[in-house]
Amino acid sequence: MISSLQELADQFNKLIAQDVPLPTTPAVPVAAGAQVGTAAPEPASPVQLTDHAAKGFHLDVRLRPERVVAAATLMDENGFAIDAVTGVDWMAEGQMEVVYDFFHPAHAWRVVVRARVPREKPELPTISEIYPGANWHERETHEFFGIVFLGHPNLTPLLLPEDATYHPLRKDFKA
């Protein structure tokens, strides 16, 4: 069990120490009047302590998609609860971001873990075996974005019609 957020940040740094460094987000020129935007410039370090008053969370972690299970395990071992899983479509950059929110029921800690997957093949492993509550969040993220959570027991639509083949939160979705 950790006793401070700094300790948790160190554990994350240890977790991703052996990984190939994440590519810095390519600067994509956005045409005037384009409907898609670009992300804010990302911080230099993939594990960042943040100001809760400014951001609403304490720790911001970016890692490779194959690391999300290890990250969820780390959260679970330290007593965090699953808050939400969701996506963001960065169409101009050809990527989808999967965002995992965690909160701690005893300490007032908030942690965000993010992983980016290529837009043409948005796949990453499920964390529903560690957090059963992620099951529904991943189903929702799958139907809204078309992001595939490998190993998920039941990746069927939850809120959309059962025969839905569209992903409405993709930026190129037209009703």
Partner: peptide, 22 residues
């Protein structure tokens, strides 16, 4: 540009709004 969260205690529990601005 950037993202941020705001959580409140709603009648049924934790409500989190996460916004991303460009």
């Amino acid at each position: 540009a950037g993202d941020c969260c705001f959580a409140v205690e709603a009648a049924r529990g934790r409500l989190l709004v996460r916004i991303v601005s460009d």
